[in-house]
Design a protein around this nucleic acid. Sequence first.
RNA 1: GGGCGCUUAGCUCAGCGGGAGAGCACUCGCCUUACAAGCGAGGGGUCACUGGUUCGAUCCCAGUAGCGCCCACCA
Length: 860
Amino acid sequence: MTATRPENVPDLPTQYAPAEVEAPLYESWVERGYFTADADSPKPRFAMVLPPPNVTGSLHIGHALGHTLMDVIVRRKRMQGFETLWLPGMDHAGISTQTLVERHLAETEGKSRHDYTRDEFVAKVWEWKEEYGGQILGQMRRLGDSVDWTRERFTMDAGLSVAVRTIFKKLYDDDLIYRAERIINWCPRCLTALSDIEVDHSEDDGELISIRYGDGDESIVVATTRAETMLGDTAVAVHPDDERYRHLIGKPVKLPLTNRRIPIVADEQVDPTFGTGAVKVTPAHDPNDFEIGQRHHLPNVVMMDERGNITVPGPFEGLDRFEARSAVVAALREERRIVAEKRPYRHSVGHCSRCETVVEPRLSLQWFVRVASLAKAAGDAVRDGRTTIEPASLAPRYFEWVDNMHDWCISRQLWWGHQIPVWYSPSGDDVVSLGPGEEPPPGWTQDPDVLDTWFSSALFPFSTLGWPDETADLKRFYPNDVLLTGYDILFFWVVRMMMFGLYAMDDVPFHTVVLTGLIRDQFGRKMSKSKGNTVDPLDWMDAYGTDAVRYTMARGANPGTDVPVGEEWVAGSRNFCNKVWNATRFALLNGATVSGTLPRELVGPDAWIMSRLQTVITEVDELYERYEFAKAADLLYHFAWDEVCDWYVELAKISLAGPRADVTRRVLGEVFDALLRLLHPIVPFVTEALWTALTGGESVMVAPWPTVDPDRRDEAAEAAVSAVQAVVTEVRRFRSDQGVKPSDSVPARLAGPAGWETEVRSLARLKEPGDGFAATASFTTGGGVTVELDLSVDSVARRARLAKELAAARKEYEVNAAKLANEAFVDKAPAAVVEKHRARLAAAESDIARIEAALAALPS
RNA sequence: GGGCGCUUAGCUCAGCGGGAGAGCACUCGCCUUACAAGCGAGGGGUCACUGGUUCGAUCCCAGUAGCGCCCACCA
């Protein structure tokens, strides 16, 4: 701060205060329209899909990761001159929202959904949405998301509803949607069907009960984990080649606890090696049994209602499925029909992904998407490279899913959602699907069910752009360029967008799928409420600033891998922001400027840092193109801190006091201008505050992305500074070993590195030898620079250091000597490698000589 | 049962054929006039184990032992 303070320089505090800086910036960006895409712009375009958060949601740490990375991508593209569109939206989230509003109504009005008509209830949900929904949108602003708010959409809004009806009718007319009675996953608590992927499987403790059906020679033992479903058995199946049971095939057997007799059938599906090799068949309550039932024309006996209560008349009627299980087992035990019981028996059990209730396979009339052709197309698009998955290692997961996909159950027994656009004639015999604006004949009634939430989410990449209308946006921004999302919703969403995008638009919805990992805690553990290790990103933003949170996210994001985060890391990121703040503050206080010509020829540190900058720009670009966020963040961190702050700023302090001060002021301006622009996508707020202060420009957001100037590369300058760094570090090590205080300036004589003596003296705190200088200590650096100092030496410390260096040098010598003594190595290794080891051997040799001489010269 | 991946410094992770790296943590010394949210210096690793390929392996191959994730209709 010794330099004269330039006029009109903003007065920056010595500590970065995020709360004061961030708040006004975001709204000013929005007001100035920086986020708004222009469909008519002549610029190349870049479009990205935002995974629409649930209307019920609030920003969690996973969003913080995804949104940060997406914002990094889109901010860089914008600076690179692309017309960027990042379209925000929300998902109506059928089951979650309905459940939440039901709970809300119970609490506030003491009423249940059934106290209202369907229309009234849906109106209540909309009221709730207006009042409480969309919290996350404000939080996205806080995080800095540069989304185009003028195009915000909601999956239940009018336009998207038109898209849903349009594609439904198209699929229906193409025979790709059908209604059928199938075994589906049913949640007895949510009272709705679920798709396969809305069921989570876990290994639970159950029981395996072996039951004797029939008596005497014609009896047969079956094993089951669900004893209660025997009330719905309509057969026993065995493998056709199983000698043990061949004589029983086709014969009836009496079903215990009932008056029914059921046939013993032969079916290939039975595994003769499992249990007794005989299996009870309950076609209405098990998907496998249903298939067996179809093949053998067995009746479907439904023995349970939609809540999981037994409906078979008799002693078990009215019991729920779990009560019935023990009651049935007890009754069978009474009749001495239990042959074996294994408890606990661990087996896979499906749970509702929403409420964890054990899912009940249930025979039910539902709507399905026939996925075979759609999934094939989705797979082919990735196979032939029209869409690429980053990282490629996650592509097998995608293929595994699209190649083995079951038909998708899309009907849900809910009120909140897109009602299925199908109408039935009064007799129920005729069915019609109607597109938008089409009216059903009088007296026809609409199917009461709604569509799976993911049905409308799957349309997001084009429904939000106006489809089915041929809008300017749709022509301009479809297909999108990038979709970034967590690998956990690859199946839920990515695959379905691929299917519907290819079907409706005849083109992929996006060219690149970038998959991120999941957030974990600082010990790499999954975050969960039960572990108590969850974090709220907003708390961290309050404590350390948004940029610190964003930087932490970017720094952890290696492609496709999980991202551990911890509070100390956020603090470290905050420190980095503060470092950049103060370094820029230094530049400002010393008159850094971006105006005026930068001389073609630079010398000294100015030439060096400009050369390094070119390399950094090149490397950062390469990393971003490969979605290597962690490495880009790390590279910029080290360039900013280690090179710009620790060396260039210190060297600039020297030139600012000399004749080249004006050039250095200009280079300082150039370097910080570029550095702030390079950092902006990751840490938009602090860079905006600093960049506008430094340059007086409008906004770093719309400043061009730095490009490489090859003429600024200067290998000689880089080599010179490397040599200076080596000498300075050696002198500092010597001082530290010798216990010299940092503030003590030691008289010293040195020659070299040529032309850099002033810099070395300054950085190593060595002063010119005055009258009466006595060289009481000296050493020669690895680079051959001899430094003589007026200093009394602690021989013990010095000897310890030299001994350590000598050991290292000797080891280096031996390793290289051994290699070079190996004829096979010299023969077969590339010449350059051999040469390198020769050079290392020579260096080690001279180091040994130098260190031994220094040791010998030490007083004993 | 299928598929994918991991094991590198105390912790979390990069590196992936020719000299073991980062952040945090740790030790010592410093309020050196941008920054103590800082500065300087330092310590710390038979790169899970066993074989193989190679002139050369943390890196490639095989096996072993742990750990993790995803998918699947095993009663």
